[in-house]
Simulated assay, not measured.
Amino acid sequence: MNTMNPGNNQLDARNLKTLEDQLAYEALMNKKCSQYAEYCTDANLKQVCQQGAATHKTNFTALKNYLDSHN
């Protein structure tokens, strides 16, 4: 089943919903990792949490850019 119309840059409703859900997940994980980093007193654990937050922010940005390119 083709989820995109040939020659059309629009996403179908199912794929759009999946992307929106994933955007929400990445935003939440970024927020949680950032919050956990604030709570950490161990420098190594704090760094792991900060790296996780950065990864989720990067994922969010990439998904958002992809979604914006299909509007």
Score class of each variant (00 low, 15 high):
Lys17Tyr: 14
Ala53Ser: 06
Ala37Trp: 07
Asp12Met: 11
Asn8Ala: 13
Ala27Ser: 14
Asn65Lys: 13
Phe60Ala: 09
Glu26Trp: 12
Asn2Ser: 13
Val48Leu: 01
Leu23Asp: 07
Pro6Lys: 08
Lys32His: 14
Leu63Gln: 08
Leu11Tyr: 11
Asn9His: 13
Asn8Gly: 08
Ala27Val: 10
Gln10Cys: 03
Asp42Leu: 01
His56Gln: 01
Gln35Tyr: 11
Ala27Gly: 10
Thr41Phe: 01
Thr41Ala: 03
Asn5Phe: 06
Pro6Leu: 02
Phe60Val: 03
Gln22Tyr: 00
Leu16Gly: 14
Glu20Leu: 10
Asp68Trp: 02
Asn2Ala: 14
Glu20Ala: 07
Asn15Arg: 14
Thr3Val: 08
Gln35Phe: 12
Ala24Asn: 05
Val48Gln: 04
Leu63Asn: 12
Met1Asp: 06
Thr55Ala: 03
Gln10Tyr: 07
Glu38Tyr: 05
Gln35Arg: 11
Met1Pro: 07
Met29Gly: 00
Tyr66Ser: 14
Ala43Ile: 01
Gln51Glu: 07
Thr61His: 11
Glu26Gly: 08
His56Gly: 00
Cys33His: 02
Arg14Val: 12
Leu28Phe: 12
Leu11Val: 01
Met4Asn: 11
Asp12Arg: 13
Gln51Lys: 12
Leu16Lys: 14
Lys17Asp: 14
Cys40Gly: 03
Gln47Leu: 11
Tyr66Phe: 15
Ala54Cys: 02
Thr41Trp: 00
Arg14Leu: 05
Gln22Trp: 00
His70Asn: 08
Gln50Tyr: 00
Cys33Thr: 06
Ala27Cys: 07
Asn30His: 10
Glu38Gln: 15
Ala53Val: 02
Cys49Trp: 03
Asn44Cys: 09
Asn44Val: 04
His56Val: 03
Phe60His: 08
His56Arg: 00
Leu45Asn: 06
Glu20Asp: 05
Lys31Cys: 05
Cys49Lys: 01
Gln22Asp: 06
Phe60Asn: 05
Ser69Ile: 02
His70Asp: 01
Gln10Arg: 15
Leu23Glu: 10
Leu11Asp: 14
Thr41Gln: 04
His70Leu: 02
Leu63Gly: 10
Ser34Tyr: 09
Cys49Ile: 00
Leu63Phe: 14
Ala24Ser: 04
Glu20Trp: 07
His70Glu: 07
Ala43Glu: 10
Asn44Lys: 14
Asn59Arg: 15
Leu11Asn: 09
